[in-house]
Design a protein around this nucleic acid. Structure first.
Lengths: 165, 165
DNA sequence: TATTGTTATACTCTATAACTATA
DNA sequence: TATAGTTATAGAGTATAACAATA
């Protein structure tokens, strides 16, 4: 269904036709977008995650899953509410994610002794072993990123975004 | 070595929750996550977008739509391929987005004179007027962000992430 | 053959709401 | 009443593939 026939909606045409502006010649002007920090932060973050996701793909681990596994490994016995709050992951989403990690036998959940509603989270031995190898891959990703940005730039950036308190 | 300046410039609030102390328990240890720049970039970007999305909600404009409108406004007559490439938006997704913007009569598409496959993109007068008001809102968001981060930190960050490619 | 735009599907992530069981 | 976890839905964004029209 072609809806743009030549000669229609001439009102929106520029009054002066651009002379010979062939596609791809003149660079795109980003306009006010250049004043928006959020835009560039997102572009960079997406670019970084592209390599990160590819790096962890062989273990079928997504970035959010990685962060959950790391926090469970470093903070065994914590509840879903605590892990979720620390990572800013909705409890509904975390519940679904943990089902998958439990299905893989990487994570185990036990009823908390002091609160029947809570589940205490632990890595299984298998999960611990897998996470160690995944961490090694993640570290290789970070080395690539550091090399790409330059050590100094990487350090400046992480200092600026890590400790805002 | 720079000491803390006693100026009135309000210390920026923490954007990323520092290790959260939950119910009298020990704070969460982020472990190796603290070595991953991508993690903190994403946390900060999501936090920033939260305000941005809320700010533009009254016009029912999403961040990606905003970036497309800005680029069409600043670069009238460019094709979907050019706009999409500049913003790193898949052509399939951009096509769907442009259908919506065309439905609102903010954007018009004409067959390119030199290439029958391409569509030249323009803002309609209505779209131009809307975008001006949306830009004003976006600017107010950026002022809030600058105040929140502190002018100096905001400037350092945008200098580091702008033109990373 | 390659490119432009379109349509379609699948998956991740976010944001809700409603529900249960416990406190 | 409030909290912890579960289930469900809806929407945005990303990544594909297949297709028609055009180069």
């Amino acid at each position: 269904m072609r809806r743009t026939k030549p000669g229609k909606s001439a009102r929106s045409q520029p009054l002066i036709a651009a002379p010979v502006k062939v596609s791809g010649n003149a660079p795109i002007d980003y306009g006010v977008l250049r004043t928006h920090l959020g835009y560039f932060l997102r572009r960079l973050q997406v670019e970084i995650f592209k390599d990160f996701i590819k790096t962890l793909a062989k273990f079928h681990v997504r970035p959010a899953q990685f962060s959950v596994l790391v926090l469970i490994g470093t903070n065994p016995g914590r509840s879903q509410a605590e892990i979720g709050k620390a990572l800013n992951i909705e409890r509904a989403r975390l519940a679904k994610m943990l089902h998958e990690l439990e299905r893989r036998r990487w994570v185990s959940r036990c009823s908390a002794v002091n609160d029947g509603r809570s589940h205490s989270l632990y890595l299984t031995p298998s999960g611990t072993e897998k996470l160690d190898r995944i961490k090694a891959l993640a570290a290789s990703h970070e080395r690539r990123l550091t090399a790409r940005l330059g050590k100094e730039r990487w350090q400046k950036l992480i200092d600026l975004v890590r400790d805002f308190g």
